Amino acid sequence: MAGIEARPRGTGPGGPPPAAGDGGRRGRVRLRITPPSRRTSLIALVLLTVLAGGGTWAVYGSGWFRANRVTVRGEQVLTADQIERAAAVPLGGPLVSVDTGAVRRRLLAALPRIDRVDVSRSWPHTVTVTVTERVPSAVLENGPKFTEVDRDGVRFATVDRAPAGVPLVELAPDAKGAAASLRVFGTSRLLQSAIAVSGDLPDSLKGHATAIRVRSWDGITVELAGGRDVMWGSAEQGAFKASVLAALMKAEPRARHFDVSAPTAPAASGS
C-alpha cells in the first residue's frame, strides 16, 4: 500500500534537527509518497471481487432475502385475501427478483375496483401492496343488480344492493324532450352527463342525493333527501353550478326547490 514518509527539510534519514535561527523553517517537513506495490493492488482487487460476489450470493442465492410474505394495505370493500390472490406474488424466490410492475398490472386487470396501487419490496422478506379503491359517485340499475360508477365515469363493480348515500341515475324516456335527446346524444352519453353531475355535487350534498334524473340533455334534476330537489340543467359548468348551489342553499335554508340551470341567475322556492 502507499506509504508516506515525513522528514525535516534539508536533513537525511538520521540527520540532526535544523539549527536554531534557520529563518522560521524549524519543524517544516517534506512528504514523499511511495506508490502502492503491484502485490498490494492485486490483493485489494481480490478482496473487492470476493465482497461483490458475497453480496450477490446473499441477495440472490441465500435464504436471507427471500420473498416469504405479502402485506396488503388500504383495502376497504375488497379483502386482503382477494388482493393477495389477484397479485399472485411468487413467494420463495429472491425478493429482489419480484417484478413489482407485473404485480401491479395483474391487480389493475383483475380488480377494477382498484383505482391506484403501489407495490414495493420491504426488506428482508416482504412484498407490500398498497391500494386505493374507487369510490362510487353514482349507481346504475342493471337488472336486479346495480353497477357502481366513480366520478370519472368508470363502471367498476356490480353489487346486489345500491350503497347508501349514492344517487341512482335514471333516464326518463317518457318526459318531454327525452326522445329528441336520445336520438341526438344517445343513452350512453346522457348517462355519462348524469354521472358527471353526481361528481360535481358540492361536498355539503355528498350522501344526501338520492337520485339523478335525466329528462333531456339540459334537463337533469337532482333529488335530495327530505323531498328537496335541484334543477341542474345540462352537465356543463358543473363546478360553477356546485359553488352557486352551495351558496344558494346557505342563503335559503328553508327552500325546497333550487334552480342552478342558469348559474348566473339561480333561484330558490317552496320555503
Rank of each mutant, 00 (worst) to 15 (best):
P263F: 03
G53L: 04
G93W: 12
E252A: 08
F185Q: 08
P144E: 14
E236W: 07
P16Q: 14
L201V: 02
D81R: 15
R9V: 15
P8T: 12
P266A: 06
T132A: 11
T56N: 08
A52N: 04
V89M: 11
V131N: 01
G153R: 00
G74W: 00
L45K: 05
V244R: 11
E236L: 11
A58V: 07
V169F: 09
G27W: 11
T132S: 11
I212A: 02
G61A: 06
R151K: 10
Q76T: 08
V222R: 01
G227N: 08
A268N: 10
R26Y: 13
F65V: 00
S269K: 12
A6F: 15
V159L: 01
W123R: 07
P112F: 12
A58L: 14
G227Q: 07
E148H: 02
P263W: 03
P17A: 13
T210E: 09
S37V: 08
L31F: 15
D99C: 11
K176E: 14
R155A: 12
E223R: 12
R32A: 13
F156N: 00
A247P: 02
K145N: 15
L140S: 05
L95Y: 06
G270T: 09
R106M: 10
W64C: 02
R9P: 03
V117E: 05
L107H: 08
E75N: 12
T210C: 04
T49Y: 04
P167G: 10
G24N: 12
S120Y: 07
T71N: 01
D152V: 01
S188F: 04
H208W: 01
L45G: 08
V222F: 05
R85F: 09
I33N: 08
G233M: 06
L111R: 07
D160N: 04
V50K: 03
E170I: 08
H125M: 06
R151G: 02
V214S: 01
H257E: 09
F65D: 00
V72P: 00
